[in-house]
Design a protein around this nucleic acid. Structure first.
Lengths: 194, 194
DNA sequence: ATTAAGTAAGTGAACATTCACACACAAAGA
DNA sequence: TCTTTGTGTGTGAATGTTCACTTACTTAAT
């Protein structure tokens, strides 16, 4: 499951293409052009296109997980952890816009069971990091207990995803750090105990 | 901008294919097979594949708008309108699952400006119907005024979209009417003035 | 001398689209 | 009442392009 430096380059080239040309632009030909070598050379590093996409999602899953854990560990109170987590997410996708399409597109490859699973796994990583924060917050009486924890989680994740979706649809025109964090603070206001 | 019965049949066949085979499965060949006639016959009714997708989004926009207006007009209080609106949405997509992929996918066609616009227009229709409800609710003191109206709207839309996304990702396994409406009620609980 | 990492030149399949043509039916003129 | 002409809707075969992927060969470093 280890990734060579060359493979990482290819993964990042794939992300770049996804941003500029969308899902249908991600072809071996374009990938080779972006890497400045021939199409056949791609196959020295990956056995298929599906493997490239899977490696990209895998790589994203690992880095997102590490980053979130660090961001959360660096803070103390649930409310601060909460804010830190989403701030970290927005900052990451701001600095690596090309991965936005990868994470928030479906239809990356036709009917691929393993890609579907990889996307679900990515969702699972967010849940894994977010849930304990909400749980701790509720136990400490910081977050409202009028709705199920699970629902709080989906409301948050939905709000986050919609902002990313709008950001991309509007061609990254607005400042996602500002807009995104403002949105998350609004959710925080709603779920906090008064 | 009028749609012939035959065109409507093709649009519905396209939706069906999207559900079963995803974005990349939507080819003229598959469309012709689903319609049980030749590929070339498709071009008697549409000049291009892009036009088929645009017509589908256009058709969806119109029917969704009409349906939402009716659902909202049939109720009186903001809270009831709110519930009715989302109930109507979930029921619609439950009965016409094949359109779920159409509305909640991006990457329907590469870099098509007009398709991007059509999707934005679809978002606009939800906003157009949702915003007055929230506004009225706030004026009547039913909904919280601790966060901007716009934010409330995006939280709601995000929650709705995420439920639809999960529903599709999990192959329509759970009851979207039940789960979805439960989620929406949770949001309602959060935004209501206590 | 082996191996890792590149290339040029292909492969068949799938893609959207176009072509010449055919058949059913209706309106209109003889 | 025939016959002409036009229109709508279908067909099979072919278009050129792009796709993911393969094969045979080269080069350079270990």
């Amino acid at each position: 499951m280890d990734i060579t430096p060359r493979q990482l380059e290819i993964i990042e080239a794939a992300g770049k293409i996804l941003t500029s040309s969308g899902v249908s632009g991600l072809t071996i030909k374009n990938l080779a052009k972006e890497m400045q070598f021939s199409e056949s050379a791609i196959y020295r590093h990956f056995t298929s296109k599906e493997e490239i996409i899977l490696a990209m999602l895998e790589y994203l899953a690992i880095t997102i997980d590490e980053r979130l854990e660090n961001a959360i560990r660096a803070t103390d109170e649930p409310e601060a952890k909460f804010t830190a987590m989403f701030q970290s997410q927005f900052a990451f996708f701001e600095s690596q816009r090309h991965f936005v399409v990868a994470v928030f597109s479906d239809g990356l490859l036709k009917e691929s069971q393993s890609i579907n699973e990889a996307i679900l796994k990515l969702l699972g990583i967010i849940i894994k990091n977010l849930f304990p924060i909400l749980l701790e917050g509720r136990m400490k009486g910081v977050f409202s207990d009028t709705v199920p924890l699970e629902d709080l989680m989906y409301i948050l994740m939905g709000t986050f995803r919609l902002q990313m979706f709008r950001w991309r649809l509007e061609d990254f025109q607005f400042d996602i750090n500002e807009t995104g964090n403002k949105m998350i603070q609004s959710v925080l206001t709603l779920i906090k105990n008064k």
